[in-house]
């Protein structure tokens, strides 16, 4: 299922948790892992200077500098690199999300793994937050493959996942998220929890829905899930369906907690890409920031079906 994985790292401690997962996937899934770091943000106009993503300093890039950065990466991941054989370290200059997407496209990877920033004690995290936070958002939006974002230590190995929560909203993109989650669940023999939240915040102001209306809506959605989604599982049994009302990200997080989820899968198809609002702008971001387990964002069908078989 994962032959080629792109681990996009800021090569700083904020990505440590993501690194563990990425290297673990390489090991357990026998995948090829590309550890990829974008080291400098270039200017718009003519200039040889780039802003180093980690230090915020101005640098002039040359081959030596790139080599030096790769050496730094090698040191950072020395422990993890010890037991591996199928890992390449690469660095590039550019705008992080753009170069990550470019790399993913060039290499046709099956999954992108990224870190997110929730460790307040990390010095300088707030400075990268703007850059890296919106990087995550933009990668999640633009990537054709699933993007897994890991912000807290992930204690369970992927092979041993037993509960996967997939949040769906009946859109085309969440159909892709569902297919991918189902495929993964089948592969690792996990329980698949299909979840939909009826967004109360999304109703018009001043128009409070009655409990009856809400329940009727829930019943309709449940019906749709049973008719449209469940048949696609082709008999996979370990499935639950849950529909609730509330603020979507809160409800998804609650569900993940109740089900002791190892992974949350959802679609990210917001069209809002204003960097100023990016970090906290969408349900995906809210979930990523608060989730105890990894979050996978899947928008497109590209990597959801097994094409090798």
């Amino acid at each position: 299922m994962f032959k080629k994985i792109l681990f996009a790292t800021s090569a700083s401690p904020v990505c440590d948790n993501a690194a563990k997962v990425a290297f673990d996937l390489e090991l357990k899934w026998d995948a090829r892992l590309i550890v990829f770091h974008v080291l400098g943000i270039p200017t718009h106009g003519f200039s040889p200077f780039v802003t180093d993503v980690r230090t915020g300093e101005r640098e002039q890039v040359d081959p030596d500098y790139v080599d030096w950065v790769k050496e730094e990466m090698r040191n950072t991941y020395a422990d993890l690199l010890k037991d591996t054989e199928n890992v390449t370290l690469e660095a590039a200059v550019g705008v992080p999300h753009r170069e990550i997407l470019r790399k993913a496209r060039d290499e046709d990877v099956d999954m992108i793994v990224m870190g997110a920033h929730t460790r307040p004690e990390d010095i300088g995290a707030s400075r990268f937050r703007n850059v890296v936070g919106s990087t995550m958002q933009k990668v999640a939006k633009g990537a054709r493959c699933p993007v897994v974002i890991i912000s807290r230590p992930c204690t369970t190995c992927w092979k041993l996942f037993s509960n996967i929560v997939v949040g769906i909203d009946l859109s085309k993109a969440s159909g892709a998220a569902f297919l991918w989650a189902a495929r993964l669940a089948r592969e690792v023999d996990a329980n698949l929890h299909i979840f939909h939240a009826v967004d109360l915040a999304g109703t018009e102001v001043g128009q409070i829905k009655s409990q009856e209306e809400i329940e009727a809506h829930i019943a309709t959605v449940r019906g749709k899930i049973e008719n449209l989604y469940l048949p696609q599982l082709k008999g996979y049994e370990k499935v639950t369906v849950m529909v609730r009302e509330g603020v979507p990200y809160v409800e998804i997080l609650k569900q993940a907690r109740e089900r002791q989820a190892d992974l949350i899968v959802m679609a990210h198809h917001t069209r809002e890409i204003d960097p100023e609002q990016a970090l906290l702008g969408s349900t995906v971001e809210q979930v990523v920031l608060r989730s105890a387990c990894p979050v996978a964002s899947v928008n497109r069908l590209d990597k959801t079906v097994d094409t090798s078989a």
Binding site: P42, T43, H44, G45, F46, G94, V95, R98
Partner: peptide
């Protein structure tokens, strides 16, 4: 060219 190289958006 910088748009092509770095800022294709």
């Amino acid at each position: 060219a910088r748009e092509v190289k770095h800022y294709p958006e």
